[in-house]
């Protein structure tokens, strides 16, 4: 969850005059604010500015040539397509897990809850080789799936599997607390009025969790668009087929073609910023709705 959206929820309204008086009470504003800005400038803003300035150096024509080249466009298509498949899977699986973990108590629930965080705790390179071994033709899953005609490794499906694995906690952990806060009365009222389980879910429950679900899916999609470590092992990295945009950046760097690498990186950066602002907007909208209720 983004911090700015969380803040909106928790920040009590303070009269302006009072807050100005309060500023004088506690010490350390100059020191902590100075340190924060200095650190952010040095570690975050300066490197990001370097990318943008260096790309701008090359001129717009060069930038456009790189990002409109067939190979780059194919890489963007693979990345977006696989990220969409991954997000669609996570939308369903993540919602199921959030519901099961929030609503029911059963043996092994704690372990199941902890396992959901595994993709965030497991380094992506490890996830990458593990998924490859699992879905390869001779792997535990691959030797069942491949005779059935489902090839995962070295296909866009494999790319999507890796993306889904690394980003599923976003959906579960965004939706789960919202389900926990739902009031049982509305559901009971609907049931008393004769609504079926499915009607209760689609008409009463889902509208209440939709904004959180959307926010979780947006985060999952954003993470999938940028994922590298988990994907490159399972993808096979065939240009025009399973080559993702972050990998194309890496290949251009190895060829010392820095302008090409930075142009593609700028596109991914722009996508990331857009998704960050979108997620923040969804969260703000969600919290406004909560307050209104």
């Amino acid at each position: 969850m983004s911090i700015s959206a969380t803040l909106d929820q928790t920040q009590p309204p303070r009269p302006a005059v009072k807050s100005r008086a309060r500023r004088r009470v506690l010490p350390g504003f100059g020191l902590t604010m100075g340190a924060t800005l200095f650190y952010l400038a040095l570690i975050v803003l300066l490197p990001v500015a370097a990318l943008i300035l260096k790309t701008a150096d090359g001129g717009f024509l060069r930038f456009w040539q790189v990002i409109s080249s067939p190979r780059a466009i194919a890489a963007f298509e693979v990345t977006i397509g696989a990220a969409l498949i991954a997000t669609a899977f996570n939308a369903i699986y993540g919602l199921l897990m959030a519901w099961v973990l929030a609503r029911y108590r059963f043996p092994g629930r704690r372990i199941l809850d902890a396992l959901i965080d595994l993709p965030f705790a497991l380094p992506t390179a490890v996830a990458g080789i593990a998924l490859t071994a699992l879905y390869a033709g001779n792997g535990w899953f691959g030797h069942i799936l491949e005779p059935a005609g489902v090839k995962v490794v070295y296909t866009i499906v494999g790319v999507a599997v890796a993306m889904a694995f690394t980003s599923v906690p976003f959906v579960v952990r965004t939706v789960q607390p919202v389900i926990e806060e739902l009031k049982a009365e509305t559901e009971e009222a609907a049931a008393t009025l004769g609504a079926s389980d499915w009607q209760i879910f689609t008409r009463v429950i889902y509208p209440a969790i939709f904004p959180a679900h959307l926010a979780g899916c947006a985060m999952s999609f954003a993470r999938s668009m940028g994922e590298f470590g988990a994907v490159i092992f399972i993808a096979g990295n065939l240009p025009f087929q399973t080559e993702i945009a972050p990998l194309l950046i890496f290949i251009r760097l190895e060829e010392y073609d820095y302008p090409a690498a930075s142009a593609i990186a700028v596109v991914l950066l722009a996508v990331a910023f857009t998704l960050l602002l979108t997620t923040n907007a969804i969260q703000a909208w969600r919290l406004k709705r909560v307050v209104k209720d």
Partner: peptide, 12 residues
Amino acid sequence: SVSPIVAGVCYL
């Protein structure tokens, strides 16, 4: 929200 590869390119 930034891809790790993009972060690397920024520093490079």
